[in-house]
Amino acid sequence: MQRVNMIMAESPGLITICLLGYLLSAECTVFLDHENANKILNRPKRYNSGKLEEFVQGNLERECMEEKCSFEEAREVFENTERTTEFWKQYVDGDQCESNPCLNGGSCKDDINSYECWCPFGFEGKNCELDVTCNIKNGRCEQFCKNSADNKVVCSCTEGYRLAENQKSCEPAVPFPCGRVSVSQTSKLTRAETVFPDVDYVNSTEAETILDNITQSTQSFNDFTRVVGGEDAKPGQFPWQVVLNGKVDAFCGGSIVNEKWIVTAAHCVETGVKITVVAGEHNIEETEHTEQKRNVIRIIPHHNYNAAINKYNHDIALLELDEPLVLNSYVTPICIADKEYTNIFLKFGSGYVSGWGRVFHKGRSALVLQYLRVPLVDRATCLRSTKFTIYNNMFCAGFHEGGRDSCQGDSGGPHVTEVEGTSFLTGIISWGEECAMKGKYGIYTKVSRYVNWIKEKTKLT
Rank of each mutant, 00 (worst) to 15 (best):
V174N: 04
V183F: 07
N100Y: 11
T445S: 06
N203K: 11
G442F: 11
S182I: 08
N343M: 05
R226W: 04
K152Y: 08
I316D: 00
D378C: 04
V419P: 01
P414Y: 14
E434G: 14
G236L: 07
R226D: 05
S169H: 03
D131L: 08
C97T: 03
F55S: 13
T84V: 06
K51S: 11
F238D: 01
E193H: 11
P175H: 06
G357A: 15
R3H: 05
I429R: 14
V199Y: 10
M65D: 15
I300T: 03
G402T: 15
C141D: 00
K68I: 05
H267L: 02
V242C: 03
Y47A: 15
Y444G: 03
T445A: 04
P197N: 04
K51W: 02
I275G: 02
K260A: 03
S354H: 04
L318H: 00
D200P: 09
W453D: 00
H34C: 09
E286D: 07
N306W: 03
G230S: 09
G254W: 00
P375V: 05
L20K: 01
S99D: 09
Q167A: 11
D338L: 03
F196W: 11
W261V: 01
L372A: 07
N393W: 11
V257G: 01
R226G: 09
A37G: 15
R364H: 11
I299V: 09
G432T: 10
Y341E: 05
F388K: 14
C141N: 00
V353K: 12
E433H: 14
S184P: 08
G351D: 01
A265Q: 03
K234A: 14
P175Y: 05
G409S: 13
H302A: 03
F176K: 04
A207T: 09
A366Y: 09
R379C: 15
D110Y: 14
Y201A: 13
T417Y: 02
Y161A: 01
K45F: 03
K260Q: 04
K247N: 10
M8W: 12
R298P: 00
V243T: 08
L24I: 05
K339L: 11
F238T: 05
G50F: 10
K68Y: 13
Y341G: 05
V30Q: 12
P44M: 11
T85N: 07
K45A: 12
F395W: 02
E171G: 05
G432A: 14
R364T: 13
A397E: 02
C141V: 00
P177D: 01
N310G: 07
K260C: 02
F251W: 06
A9V: 05
C155N: 00
I40E: 15
P333S: 05
R294N: 00
R75A: 12
E98F: 10
D95F: 14
V242A: 04
F360E: 10
E67A: 13
T225L: 05
Y161M: 03
C252H: 00
F144H: 01
V296R: 00
F360P: 13
A250P: 09
G442Q: 15
E208V: 05
S156E: 09
I454T: 01
F388H: 14
C119Q: 03
S169D: 05
K137D: 14
E142R: 03
E270V: 06
Q2S: 08
D150C: 03
C396G: 02
A380N: 07
T85V: 07
I309E: 12
E231W: 07
G398R: 09
A265N: 02
L32H: 15
L20I: 05
R162S: 10
L130N: 11
E67H: 12
N222Y: 11
K247V: 08
M394L: 13
S411W: 14
E320Q: 05
V248P: 09
I316N: 00
I210P: 05
E73A: 13
V416K: 00
V377L: 13
E208K: 11
L367F: 15
N127K: 11
E76I: 15
N59C: 08
S148N: 06
I309P: 05
T158L: 06
R298K: 09
S49G: 13
S70C: 06
C97E: 02
V257P: 00
A436T: 12
L367I: 07
K446R: 07
A164L: 07
S411Y: 10
E129V: 06
W431N: 05
N127Y: 12
T381D: 15
D223G: 05
F121W: 07
S169K: 08
G125E: 03
T194Q: 03
A149L: 06
I316Y: 01
E61G: 13
N304M: 09
G413F: 03
K260G: 02
K438N: 03
V368F: 15
C145G: 02
N283I: 05
E53K: 09
K440P: 05
E401I: 14
G439K: 13
G50W: 06
W453C: 01
H415I: 06
G439F: 03
C69D: 13
L369E: 15
E231Q: 06
A265I: 00
D232G: 04
N313E: 13
L319S: 00
K440M: 07
Y22V: 06
F424K: 00
E340I: 11
T381I: 14
L14P: 07
I210S: 12
E434Y: 07
K260L: 08
I428W: 14
R226F: 09
V248G: 12
F345G: 01
V153Y: 10
V202N: 12
G13Y: 08
S70L: 14
G402W: 15
T209A: 05
L376I: 14
Q167W: 06
K39G: 11
G160K: 01
C18V: 09
I214E: 12
Y312V: 09
E27G: 13
K126C: 11
K45S: 05
I210K: 05
M6W: 11
C108P: 04
E73N: 13
I275F: 11
N295A: 06
Y450H: 03
C178S: 01
N38S: 13
T186E: 10
E159L: 06
E259L: 03
C396S: 01
N48S: 12
K459A: 06
W356N: 04
A308L: 09
G253C: 10
N38K: 07
Q219G: 10
I284F: 10
V242Q: 00
K311W: 04
Y444D: 01
T225F: 05
I429M: 13
Q241L: 13
K188H: 04
S423I: 09
E86K: 15
N135F: 13
E76Y: 15
E53Q: 04
C141P: 00
M8C: 14
Q143G: 00
I390G: 11
N304R: 12
P12T: 14
P175N: 04
D322H: 05
E285Q: 09
W240L: 00
K455L: 10
I299C: 06
K152D: 14
S187Q: 10
S430N: 05
I15C: 05
M437N: 04
A233G: 09
V228T: 12
V228H: 11
W118S: 13
Y305K: 02
T84D: 09
A233K: 08
G253I: 12
S148I: 05
G94R: 14
Q2A: 10
E73P: 15
N42W: 05
N127M: 15
V277P: 01
A233Y: 08
A250Y: 06
C145S: 03
C119P: 03
Y91W: 04
G412E: 04
V4L: 13
C145K: 01
V263E: 00
Q90I: 14
C178G: 00
P301R: 06
Q241D: 03
Q216H: 10
T389C: 15
C108A: 01
V296L: 02
I40Y: 09
V199L: 09
N258G: 03
I40R: 08
L23Q: 01
C128E: 08
R449M: 15
V174D: 07
K446C: 10
F78G: 15
S430G: 07
W356Q: 08
T133Y: 10
N104D: 03
I344P: 03
L325D: 00
K274L: 07
H314F: 10
L163T: 05
D198Q: 08
K455I: 07
F123R: 14
E418K: 05
V92P: 09
M437W: 13
G246N: 12
